[in-house]
Design a binder for these strands. Structure first.
Lengths: 112, 112
DNA sequence: GAATATACATAAGTATCTTAGGTATAACGA
DNA sequence: TCGTTATACCTAAGATACTTATGTATATTC
């Protein structure tokens, strides 16, 4: 697991990214998918995820529908029609931000 | 400028990276360098930078020496001998973290 | 039948940031 | 010469995204 502070601010774009790929997902599924993609290096804690999902719903970006699987409830999240566009914008910004980080780490500048 | 929340957690590794390249820098110089490297997309606020530098010093990773330039004081930061190693470790972790972000954004997973 | 996995949730505390303010010198343009 | 911008440091209040801990409940596995 990475140091806790690195992760701040990345959770929302991660959620948005996954939902852009899969249309609808439930919370626990998101934690599993992230863990799998990063070979266990990044584990989203539920104490962070659920409040984040609730906020995205409260902001009108995601909507939910509950479904019974076996005897357990799953709460599926998907984009609202307006949220779709907002999510795309946020993802573009996030990718651009990561590019900037790479620039900082790699630029052979006039330093030294 | 990027959304505020994206930036959280990245300031410390940025400082460490720059000091690995240049040996010693002062606060204001760091803000200029970051702005230049990112074409103005990332501007470190002084309210964030100075407390971060103070913390790195308090943690024994950086040390300082004040210098008079013209009539203005510059406070130069550089690694302590033990801080050098810690900084390297932190940078490796940060790069790895960015790689994980890329994995999440790019993996053609079994989703959909 | 105990431990682990699945699946949701909240709440207190921590840490990093933003925003806003403060001090002071240097340089530049109107 | 006077106001603005740049340089250069600093702190404090408030916002907020996280961690850690806890709770509830069902399903599966050993």
């Amino acid at each position: 697991m990475y140091s806790k502070d690195l992760i701040k601010g990345t959770l929302q774009p991660i959620i948005i990214q996954l939902l852009h790929e899969k249309e609808r997902m439930y919370g626990y599924e998101i934690t599993r998918e992230v863990k799998q993609r990063t070979a266990g290096k990044l584990e989203i804690t539920e104490g962070a995820l659920y409040p984040a999902l609730h906020k995205l719903e409260a902001d009108g970006i995601l909507k939910t529908e509950k479904e019974l699987h076996g005897n357990r409830i799953r709460k599926y999240y998907s984009f609202t029609s307006s949220g779709e566009k907002q999510g795309q914008t946020l993802l573009i910004e996030f990718r651009d931000f990561l590019d900037s980080m790479r620039l900082i780490l790699n630029s052979k500048s006039n330093l030294v």
